[in-house]
Every structure is written in structure tokens, then in C-alpha cells.
């Protein structure tokens, strides 16, 4: 389905969801490039209500047949909803459609947050360079706020099964090792060595069961020139678990963007201090090391599975090849670095 066919069908769906609205139209629908796990479009929804014209900018995210990350869209939707209006800035979720009748594939619609940037590359240019300290403080403070949140009070345990504190690492490592087993197109001696080490040196039990964003990194939030963050995006891999898991993902060296700084912004120790202050939790160095190495393995599993989706023909979009070619070797080098073998 091209954009021309999509717009009227989306407008018809919106009209059904807005019974008091009339003249519902979808305008300026255009695809946003880069999304590997969802097909993402921006558009303007216009309608009349109470005799007045209305307009709202929105984002449509549609599941492709095979994506880089296979996730439950309801989990993602509820994670956004849980944090809307909190200290963790997220876009407002509007509709979730799990059926395929309306647009052939399941989808969600959210309010668009406009006027900010997400691309990491801009951060290494003026005027953004001057805002790195502020951005880093905001980034790891927000991540700490996610860790501080009570997933049971937010009702997220209804859609995300909570593990036992001592079982967080077993579940996550087992899940991503299974992905590697199923999807690797060639042997991965470095990742396999890391997995053996992780199993032989388990981390302590989680201090609490918290919300884990699952992909909190530079590039997955909207920022401005002052270093303020206006939206945390890409909650596809959200789940409940050890909050240190998110900290470890943010410290995965592939997200340093060749700058040898956490997220390309500040030294690891500075990032960890912001996170500890906001979360109220302790980042035990050995546990952080374990979760950082785990996240290197998780990253490799994601890059490998994107290659697998392309090889098997389920998704031949070039975005599926880019991480496989562009991140697999850097991820191996990140593993070596974290294991002190580089």
C-alpha cells in the first residue's frame, strides 16, 4: 500500500474513532526514513467539530511483515501511555489498532512532537557541541526516572510479565542467546565467548523490578540546542526487569559514535552518577560491567536478526542490511573492549 492509498484509509479509520467529528482528512502523509522495526509516517489530521475546523499533527507507526525487532505493539503502546505527563517526556498515544482490517497491518497513532532533533550526527556539530553536558545530565536523569518508576503502580505488570529479582539476567540472556542461535548466518566466536563469561559470572539480584526501556540511547530521544530532551522514543523493547539493564545499554560502546564517551557525550562515570542520583539506586561496578557486556551481546543479536530477516526474504528493505554491515564488527570490538581484550 503506497501513501496515496494509505491516506484515505487512515482518514476513514480516524473518522470511525472520532464519532463527533466530520470532514476528517489525512493531509501531507509522508514516510519518515530510518525506522527498522516499524513503518513510520507523519501526517496532519484535519476535521470539523462543534462547527470549528481542527488540526493535529500525528505519527502513524505500522508493523512491517518482518521487522528488526519483533515486539508486541500493545506493550510499546502501554509503556508510552504509562509515562505520558511524567518526568519522562513521551508523545501522547492516541490509537492502537491490533487488527489488520483498517490498514492491512497493525498500527498505532501518536501525537507528533515537532521542532526538535533526534539524529546523533547533529550532536557533533555546532551549536549542539556546547550542550553536551546538559544533554547528558538530562539523558541519564530521565533514564534514572524510568528506573525509579513503580511498574506495578503504573499497571505495566498487566502487559509485561515481571521476573523475580534473581531471575532477570537469566531470562534476558536466555532470550537473546536464543535469537543468536536461531538467526546467526555465520559463527560468532566473540559473542559466544562473551555468553560463556556472562553465564559463569552472574550479576547480583536486581535491587528492584523496574521498567526497562530496552533501547535508551543517543538517537532515540528528541533534543534541542540547549540540551533539553522533549521526547523519549522507541519503546518497542520495553519490559520489566533489572534497571541496570538500561544503564548497561546506554553504556554499550557502539553508542559512543567513535568518541570514547558514554553516548558520545560524557565519561561513563559521569553518566552513572547522574543515573544514580535520579534513580535512587546504586550502580554496583561489577553489576554495571555485567549488564554492559550483556547489552553488547543483545546488540549483536539484534544486528544478526536484521541480517536474517533480509536473507530469508521477509524484509528486503536496505535499512535491514545497514546494521548488519555497519554494526556487527563494531559490536564485536565493543565486546572485546568491555572484556578487556582489545
Amino acid at each position: 500500500m503506497g501513501s496515496a492509498d494509505l491516506a484515505p484509509r487512515l482518514a476513514a479509520y480516524a473518522a470511525r474513532r472520532m464519532p463527533t467529528a466530520s470532514d476528517v482528512e489525512v493531509r501531507d502523509l509522508s514516510r519518515i526514513s530510518g525506522g527498522a522495526s516499524r513503518q513510520t509516517y507523519r501526517f496532519r489530521l484535519t476535521w470539523s467539530e462543534d462547527g470549528a475546523p481542527r488540526e493535529r499533527r500525528m505519527i502513524l507507526r505500522r508493523d512491517p511483515p518482518v521487522s528488526l525487532i519483533d515486539t508486541e505493539r500493545r506493550v510499546e503502546f502501554e509503556a508510552y501511555r504509562a509515562f505520558f505527563g511524567s518526568k519522562v517526556p513521551v508523545p501522547e498515544m492516541i490509537w492502537l489498532e491490533e487488527g489488520t482490517e483498517a490498514l492491512d497491518l497493525p498500527f498505532s497513532v501518536a501525537a507528533e512532537i515537532t521542532g526538535y532533533e533526534a539524529a546523533p550526527a547533529l550532536l557533533w556539530t555546532e551549536p549542539y557541541l556546547a550542550a553536551h553536558e546538559t544533554l547528558a545530565r538530562n539523558k541519564w536523569t530521565i533514564l534514572g526516572e524510568i528506573a525509579r518508576a513503580d511498574p506495578f503502580a503504573l499497571g505495566l505488570d498487566q502487559v509485561m510479565p515481571p521476573p523475580e529479582p534473581e531471575g532477570c539476567w537469566v531470562r534476558e540472556l536466555g532470550m537473546w542467546e536464543t535469537v543468536l542461535d536461531a538467526d546467526e548466518a555465520e559463527p560468532l566466536p566473540i559473542a559466544r565467548a562473551a555468553i560463556r563469561w556472562l553465564r559463569a559470572n552472574p550479576p547480583p539480584p536486581a535491587q528492584k523490578i523496574g521498567v526497562v526501556h530496552g533501547d535508551f540511547r543517543t538517537g532515540n530521544f528528541l533534543y534541542d540546542r540547549q540540551g533539553d530532551i522533549h521526547g523519549v522514543l522507541d519503546w518497542e523493547m520495553a519490559h520489566l526487569g533489572d534497571p541496570l539493564e538500561d544503564l548497561g545499554w546506554s553504556l554499550n560502546p557502539v553508542w559512543n559514535f567513535k568518541r570514547d564517551l558514554a553516548g558520545g557525550l560524557v565519561p561513563d562515570g559521569v553518566a552513572i552518577a547522574y543515573w544514580e542520583a535520579a534513580s535512587g539506586l546504586r550502580a554496583d561496578p561489577a553489576a554495571v560491567h555485567w549488564w554492559t557486556l550483556f547489552n553488547c551481546v543483545k546488540g549483536q543479536a539484534i544486528w544478526i536478526s536484521s541480517a536474517r530477516a533480509w536473507i530469508d526474504g521477509g524484509n528486503r528493505e536496505p535499512i535491514m542490511v545497514l546494521p548488519a554491515w555497519g554494526l556487527q564488527n563494531p559490536q564485536d570490538r565493543a565486546i572485546l573492549k568491555v572484556m578487556d581484550h582489545l
Binding site: P189, I190, A193, P253, V254, W255, N256, F257, K258, L322, P323, G326, L327, N329, P330, Q331, D332, R333, A334, L336, H341, L342
Partner: peptide, 19 residues
């Protein structure tokens, strides 16, 4: 073995890599 694994990543390095 670790030395060879490190060398294997050197052989695969690309200036156009994403990280």
C-alpha cells in the same frame, strides 16, 4: 585465541562503519 579474535575485528574494520 583472544589475540586472533582481536585481529579478526581489525581485518573487518571499515571506515564507513556506523560505530
Amino acid at each position: 585465541i583472544w589475540q586472533e579474535l582481536r585481529l579478526s575485528t581489525e581485518r573487518r574494520r571499515m571506515s564507513s562503519a556506523l560505530a
